[in-house]
């Protein structure tokens, strides 16, 4: 019962945050909406006893990524008016059509009786063991993807620095 109430409240918050991201005129409010959604997702993870995932969600997404988003938004200046001209032609019509198709498919599935809510699987891992379990999996079975991901991140960081520092703009600045 408590879980249901919690779910309804948090789900409402998550949807509200998502809608804020789409409709907010001010990008800072959009970022805050995204943070709200990410937080609600963390609560869902806690409800499903995935404490580690929840903590990582808050640290990485709500803590680091969103802070950087805000940082960038503030650095480039939020007071400037947004450019509302659409660069992609027909994108509204395209998105509308796509949305209609999705609703139709979902409707057909629901009407045809092929629709089912996701049932929680019987918990195989003890709640207190998630950290250890994830750690073991990461460092045994998934060691290659894990290391590859970290390599990818380092390459991305190095690439960003390379673009920012050693591009042609750098030389211009030194000349000026």
């Amino acid at each position: 019962m408590i879980e249901l109430i919690l779910f309804i409240i948090v789900a409402a918050v998550a949807i509200f945050g998502a809608l804020t991201v789409v409709f907010a005129r001010n990008p800072v409010y959009g970022a805050m909406g995204l943070m709200m959604t990410l937080f609600s997702l963390a609560v869902f993870y806690v409800v499903h006893l995935a404490h580690l995932v929840a903590a990582v969600q808050v640290i990485v997404y709500a803590g680091a990524v969103m802070t950087l988003f805000l940082f960038v938004i503030m650095m480039i200046g939020v007071d400037r008016d947004e450019d509302n001209t659409e660069k992609l032609p027909m994108q509204r019509q395209f998105v509308g059509a796509l949305g209609l198709v999705i609703v139709l498919v979902a409707g057909i599935a629901a009407v045809g009786g092929r629709f089912d809510w996701v049932r929680p699987a019987a918990s195989t891992v003890e709640a207190n063991g998630t950290v250890q379990e994830v750690g073991k999996l990461l460092f045994t079975e998934w060691i290659l993807p894990f290391e590859a991901t970290s390599l990818l991140l380092i390459i991305a960081a190095a690439g960003a620095i390379a673009l920012a520092y050693f591009g042609p703009r750098r030389r211009d600045r030194e000349d000026a």
Binding site: H51, L52, V58, G63, T67, A127
Partner: peptide, 15 residues
């Protein structure tokens, strides 16, 4: 059981 991570999460949210 994730107390330390919780603390790190909260301190990053405090920003």
């Amino acid at each position: 059981n994730i107390g330390v991570l919780f603390f790190l999460a909260m301190s990053s949210v405090a920003v």
